[in-house]
Write a protein that binds this DNA or RNA. Sequence first.
RNA 1: GCCCUCGUAGCGCAAUUGGACAGCGCAUCGGACUUCUAAUCCGGCGGUUGUGAGUUCGAGUCUCACCGGGGGCGCCA
Length: 586
Amino acid sequence: MFDRYKIQIEEQINPILKGEGLEHISLAWSLIPFSGHWGISTSFFQIAAQEARSGKKINVAQRATELADLVAGKLILGREFERCEAVRGYINIYFEPKSFSQMVVDKVLDEKQLFGSFPSNDETVMVEFSQPNTHKAFHVGHLRNIVLGASVSNILEFNGNTVIRANYLGDIGLHVITWLWNYENFHQGETPPAENAISWIGELYAEAVKRREESEQNEEAIRRYFQAWDNHDPEIVALWEETRQWSLDAFAQLYETLGVHFDRLYFESEVEHVGKAFVEELIEKELAVDERPQGAVIIDLDALLGTKEEYRVLVLLRSDGTSLYATKDIPLAVKKFDEYKLDRSIYVVDVRQSLYLKQIFKVLELLGYEWANRCQHLAYEIVNLPGNVTLASREGTVVLLEDLIREAEKRAMEIVDHKNPELNIEEKQRIASMIALGSIKYSLLSRDNTKIVTFDWETALDVNGQAAPYIQYAAVRANSILRKAGYQIPDELHSPDDLEEKEIILVDLISRFPQEVEKAGRDLKPLVITSYAYDLAKAFNDFYTNCPVLSAKDEVRSFRLRLVAATKQTIINSLGLLGIQIPEIM
RNA sequence: GCCCUCGUAGCGCAAUUGGACAGCGCAUCGGACUUCUAAUCCGGCGGUUGUGAGUUCGAGUCUCACCGGGGGCGCCA
């Protein structure tokens, strides 16, 4: 956006530096880091340091200051610039606010919901996230994964990638069998209640595990049940299929509530069989070692690679021949790349699986897949309870997703009810839901992926301060002004000669949105967007209290209306990347 | 034992990837609603960035060593 100006200015700076005996200098430009006025800046420290290294006896800081002063004194700026200044070795060049602000606002109103996005770049990326087990409940730990995966997908899409949102469901294994056995013996004929199907399924799971653990007889019965399932006992398979669907339906409902969708569902059951063939291949190629029946099928990566205690040993198949996660993850990766010709495959999985995924990617490389190094683990830390208590359904230390959402909606509803008593109940509920879900999502996304989230009800349901409702409210205020103006946004491109400081800060922030999107995409960090959206809302609230819009005169009013519309759009776009919606009223 | 990760104000978190004076929110204290919605705004208080070295003109950020929390290391997922 500013390249043209940079070149233009460098053409002036180079001769000045040449006069100082400095040639072939390249300057690194950046946006001036604090708001107030916008502009670009560069420093002379590197140049001074170079001089010092070449033998001259100079004080680097002093020399940088001297050079900055010199250049600032000699620069001749065009009318698109306001002024330039030298500050402690830096030179700051400020743009003329009028034309710049006009340019930014025009751009937003022109591009609308696409503002901040980048054109398609031909890169296809798959993001695998959520990965729930059927026949189990969802808790807040799972939510962090979903919310992160969904947001990263949105951000990558905005960056111009073609994104395939994939889910990988654990629909087989001991946990499923345990559930089925318990159901058939103790809950025959029951069906999940429509309202809270996941909780019901989860409760049965907890009960099933308890039964399995409390008697050896039960454990044996379950093992026999597993055998029967493995031998395709038609009754058990039918029950498996039916109950699995209950879970899938319930998940679909939850994803809808969360506003998350998937382009492709993978199932463990669809890759298990082919996975065993891959294990055979690995044994044949003498990469894997078959220690059965005494041991398992393993692949000693350190031995193969000559590393020491780095890749360790990966178990591919149990000694009894049944499959493990690794058995299935290998064919799954192949399937993904085959189906979609991926350029990149991202796994949103918690940090505890870092070594495991590193192993899987290495095995794929050893199998000769050239794309193996384009698999990427997006690791995030877990959600804990206070006192470093791990969330675990079997310990009872768990916060169920449905409970959390219900409670958050209840609290939001109280406020909505109080503030907007005239609305009908459906509308109130809709608004409360957006606020509740927004708060929950925001609180999970607004800390770095590498930081543990300690869940407590107080913080999770706090809607004050740096939280989604603050940002949503800013957009609602903007909307309120626009509504009172009859949604008539003037076309005039004139902006007033003198802009208020608050307006300048606001325009400045809006102009930074695209680069924040880029950064969030590069680092796979929604945190960048949560911070940005908050700063933007703050700047708008500041503008709101200081700059009247509707009562302002002609051109000021027009410009401010356009600015308000542009702000609303930018808030919508940024919260959209986080999967957070904005009500019209709140 | 090896590896990963975190440590910033009483608490919860940021910091443009090595740049300007380390910012914000809770909490706390004090102000502002006959005004486009106060779920808002303004001000005060609060810091040796775990410790110690090193690299650099410049370090919260990079290197090394310690200290402390969490996690992972062959048949769990």
